[in-house]
C-alpha cells in the first residue's frame, strides 16, 4: 500500500475493506488500542500488522 502524509490506521483498515470489528493492530511491533485507530498516524516505512481475532460459534 502506498504511504501518504497523514495516513492513519483507520485509513488502512478502510482501504483494505476490513469490516470485522475485532481487529488488533501493531505498528513496528507496538500495539495500537482500538479507540486510537482514527487518530494514530502511520509513519512512512512502518511495519503494520493487522490481525483479525476469531469470533463465531
Amino acid at each position: 500500500m502506498e504511504w501518504e502524509v497523514g495516513l492513519t490506521v483507520k485509513d488502512i483498515i478502510t482501504r483494505k475493506k476490513y469490516t470485522f470489528p475485532l481487529l488488533a493492530v501493531w505498528i513496528n511491533d507496538s500495539p495500537v488500542p482500538r479507540d486510537d485507530f482514527n487518530s494514530t498516524k502511520v509513519p512512512d516505512g512502518a511495519k503494520v500488522q493487522i490481525i483479525h481475532m476469531i469470533s463465531g460459534g
Binding site: A24, P33, I51
Partner: peptide, 26 residues
C-alpha cells in the same frame, strides 16, 4: 457452556496486551 461469550466479546485490552497468536485465544 455456550462458546459465544468466549470470543464474541473480548476484553478492551485483549488485542494490545498479548501478542497476536496468544490474543486469538482470549
Amino acid at each position: 457452556l455456550c462458546k459465544l461469550p468466549w470470543n464474541d466479546i473480548e476484553p478492551a485490552d485483549n488485542a494490545t496486551k498479548y501478542p497476536p497468536q496468544e490474543a486469538a485465544k482470549v
